[in-house]
Design a binder for these strands. Structure first.
Lengths: 343, 343
DNA sequence: CAAAGCATCCAAAGCGCTTTGAATTTCTCA
DNA sequence: TGAGAAATTCAAAGCGCTTTGGATGCTTTG
């Protein structure tokens, strides 16, 4: 059933039917009711492409996930993010279009999004330091919001970020206060802006106490379980091993835990661990008492908030850009305790 | 830049330019070259909506993820699946559109996909027993393939499935051969077809040895880490606890592991564990020696294969339906060993 | 009571592409 | 060389919707 057919059944013009369906005022309430009834009866809904052609909008929002050729993996954190965003899209009649693409082709995808009119805007994921994609999106004129920020880019754009630096500074301070002096940092890829900021927070805490940085205690890579495991094992094998670990993802923290367990070390007693917890639904940080002491910020909430920002921006392009910095909560679990006194 | 503008620059008709760009034969090679050059120079790519309107196709494939209101979560396994599918879409110029929707609204989404022409086909995820969505998709005439199968539905449709029953029968046999007699099953939601089949496989193995089923050893729920933990704890607290566990997901297996560890039980010596391993990129089952003995089947590969099936089906609707049943590999890791003799 | 205003409705153009059917040009080869 | 075939190109219709710019009839109001 299309508009033409529907209007013929009703004995009305396509104009009137279209207006009635789209809530315009220049149609009487009685005919509007009739039109809505007949439309529902025939299960009518407008063809998205035709509507889009006429309006110049797609009612879709793009997410492009770079799928690097070296480490081809889709971050599970992304799953929770889009779960949040998906709610917002459903409520606002937007579609979500996902492009999983070799990172070298990412620019092409954004350009195609614009020239082909596939989407009305995009959410930029995983900003790097000096990220070139921001200038690209500005250049091609595709509305966007950023999940995170990009150090080194000073143009003005909308973003929502967690205060990673403060989070990791606080977490480090927490461990220092417990007497830990050697703290391993198991960080994400430090080309990523969030990881860079976390490292800065870690450094802040150390330098505030005039402690020097030991590069033997720093690891940075894709935040897999295996990375957490291997980093921990390596660091514990060093002559002067850390007594605590600060981990960038609960996924890697699971690997840390495995490494400790394998050596018969008890978490929270022999070795302390703090992790960043994105609140992943399938990897909840314990039921009642948290397994890990953690800096927590729900990535699902971030998905919700960011998609709302983008939808608002698309509907009202002249509104001022929005920036939101979320503080994390530092919740104490069973993975931390006083530094063991070297007896 | 649009077709009209491009054809004016070239001094050719839109017809010719369109044909040249789409590879039709009725245009000379010399003009085609010229057209392609100018198109590239002006960074032309056709408006997707206009093209879709004209051709009646969207070049998009839908995935709808039910987001149940009780347990609102997007399965991380899904992330790896779409990573595989995304590769195929990118190679075939399809877009992936994702709809995350309350499960009660799932039918509406499929109907809207069809009437609005949002997508050319869908991949059906997480089939349940007697799944009503299959009949729905057949009724509305939206091409689809199923990731899994639906017991109780005997209509003919395309699917790709893992041989879950055989996998769990083999895994159970493996444990039985090691002398285990009480094996806990930590299964997914048994309304899900895959979980039902896994349970059948488990039962097959037991009944083949004339062993009876103990419902105290059966657990079924969403496959979170927490579920693995709580199930294990509960079962181990029973008077006659299991000596081995069969787990439906590596995520829950992590919870099993945590529960064991907490009690000071060593995996592979005190208690054996076999898990199903979907080959998730961020939760790899160990680097060299697998952590868990596992029945393994890459969900990313499944994503690749299924999306290829669907693309083929869309391009050639008259081709016969495809069915593919994948056997799993049972790889031995460090989580299994002979049943402890009750000394 | 005529003119103005208002509420309703409609015809037709236009969004940017593909494709049909026809026109034009270029080849072939008797 | 010229007619028919083949190759190349084009004008225009059509995909299903929105929206502009009227039209039409009804109600007010001076």
């Amino acid at each position: 059933m299309n508009l033409k057919g529907l209007s013929e059944i009703l004995g009305l013009s396509q104009t009137t039917v279209s207006r009635a369906l789209n809530g315009y005022p220049e149609v009487s309430e009685t005919t509007r009711k009739k039109i809505l009834a007949v439309a529902a009866e025939h299960n009518y809904s407008p063809n998205a492409r035709a509507k889009g052609l006429a309006t110049g909008r797609s009612n879709a929002i793009g997410h492009v996930i770079p799928n690097a050729t070296q480490h081809e993996m889709v971050n599970p954190i992304f799953g929770d993010f889009i779960a949040g965003a998906g709610e917002v899209y459903a409520a606002n009649n937007y579609e979500m279009v996902l492009s999983i693409v070799a990172d070298v082709d990412e620019e092409k995808v954004y350009r195609a999004f614009k020239t082909r009119g596939t989407v009305d805007g995009v959410i930029l994921h995983g900003p790097k330091m000096n990220d070139t994609r921001i200038a690209l999106l500005e250049e091609i004129g595709l509305p966007f919001v950023v999940h995170g920020r990009a150090s080194g880019i000073d143009s003005d754009y909308s973003w929502l970020d967690v205060n990673n630096r403060s989070a990791f500074r606080r977490a480090t301070d927490f461990l220092l206060d417990l007497g830990h002096r050697r703290i391993g940092l198991i960080n994400g890829l430090e080309t990523m802006d969030f990881a860079y900021r976390r490292r800065r927070g870690y450094e802040d805490a150390l330098t505030a106490r005039s402690m020097s940085l030991d590069t033997d205690l720093l690891r940075t890579d894709e935040m897999t379980e295996g990375f957490g495991y291997s980093s921990t094992t390596e660091m514990l094998n060093q002559p002067n091993p850390p007594t605590a670990f600060l981990v960038s993802s609960i996924i890697s923290a699971l690997g840390v835990r495995r490494a400790l367990e394998e050596r018969g070390l008890q978490m929270g007693r022999d070795v302390s661990v703090i992790t960043f917890d994105d609140g992943l639904s399938y990897l909840a940080n314990g039921a009642d008492v948290p397994i890990f002491t953690a800096t927590r910020s729900s990535v699902r909430d971030a998905g919700r908030a960011l998609s709302e920002m983008l939808v608002a921006q698309i509907n009202n392009p002249d509104a001022p850009l929005q920036k939101r910095l979320l503080e994390v909560e530092l919740t104490v679990g069973r993975s931390t305790g006083p530094a063991p006194t070297s007896a």
